[in-house]
């Protein structure tokens, strides 16, 4: 069991990460999942126990279908293995929650080759610009250099917002005028980064609802241009998803996945009371993994998403 729960090691950040994740899920722990653990501590498991359990997952935005699947799986295991104690039952549910999230193995961004272009995409107000700044800071901690591309040329003052962050994290911001073609900004940024051997270009794109066909086509073009500006570059697409989002997150992820082949998700705003349970449904239905979490307003409130720790922390009660 210990082995199963061991995480990929990046020793210099482990403690810090753990603290941040713990901090992020503190509210959650105190709430819903604390009660899940309590449920299992009651000695006799009844029909009501399972119903309540399902409701608790739904309340965490896990979604009615995924919640029901999780509970059914845990229940079957408990029956098949003739488990009796509440601790065994809790482990069964925990195991299934981890299973739904799949493996958290992915090539760490900080290890990617020089020239990598990271597209930050998402709906309006999900936290793309703030996440861009946090990710820049995160990569800089690994001594990787970053250029920022101000590709949100639509929203008023979005370029200024990124410039201010650029000054704070000391990263160069490549920007054009308001209403300029975002692809042209990306082209310039990628070329400039290539010339100077900069490790990453992070592209802060405009927020767009996934149902807007034209805007999604524009995003496709941005990706195409990024790839063309440097054919050797790897282009990574990260979807910034607000943790307070409900079931619409699945439609969002699906649409962005089809448009720019999303590699991973940044789950933002996990510092509220929202449970981020949407992560379960998104992975369950689309297999798009969560890579990072945003846990506050400060620049270093950002950490790799660790499935085992996340689920474990949710179940920790003391």
């Amino acid at each position: 069991m210990k082995n199963l729960f061991r995480r990929r090691s990046t020793p210099e950040v482990t403690e810090e990460e753990r603290e941040q994740i713990d901090h992020a899920v503190q509210k959650t722990k105190d709430g819903v999942f604390n009660r899940i653990s309590d449920l299992f501590r009651e000695s006799v498991i009844t029909e009501d126990t399972w119903d309540e359990l399902e409701e608790l997952l739904i309340q965490a935005d896990v979604g009615p279908v995924t919640a029901s699947t999780l509970v059914e799986s845990a229940r079957k295991d408990v029956e098949r293995e003739e488990l009796h104690t509440s601790v065994e039952a809790e482990t069964a549910l925990r195991r299934h929650m981890v299973e739904v999230l799949g493996s958290d193995e992915h090539e760490p961004l900080e290890d990617m080759e020089t020239g990598t272009v990271i597209l930050m995409v998402g709906v309006n107000g999900s936290g793309k610009t703030t996440s861009t700044a946090k990710l820049t800071h995160y990569l800089q901690r690994y001594d990787r250099s970053v250029y920022l591309a101000a590709a949100d040329t639509f929203r008023a003052a979005a370029i200024d917002q990124l410039r201010i962050w650029g000054e704070r994290v000391k990263a160069r911001v490549v920007a054009h005028q308001q209403d300029a073609d975002p692809s042209a900004v990306v082209f310039d940024a990628v070329k400039a980064a290539q010339q100077r051997g900069v490790d990453f270009v992070i592209v802060d794109t405009a927020g767009r609802l996934h149902t807007k066909f034209n805007l999604m086509e524009e995003l496709q073009k941005i990706k195409r241009v990024a790839q063309k500006s440097n054919p050797d570059a790897r282009v990574v697409s990260l979807l910034v998803l607000d943790a307070t989002t409900g079931q619409n997150a699945i439609l969002q992820a699906k649409s962005f996945l089809q448009t720019v082949d999303v590699d991973g998700i940044i789950l933002s705003k996990l510092d509220g009371t929202a449970k981020g349970g949407v992560a379960f449904s998104v992975y369950n239905e689309l297999k798009v993994p969560i890579w990072y979490i945003g846990t506050g307003e400060k620049i270093d409130d950002f950490a790799p998403f660790n499935h085992l720790e996340f689920v474990n922390a949710l179940f920790e009660t003391r």
Partner: peptide, 12 residues
Amino acid sequence: ADAMTGQDAVHA
């Protein structure tokens, strides 16, 4: 309020 908000909307 964002129309896409989930279960937590009522708490906020």
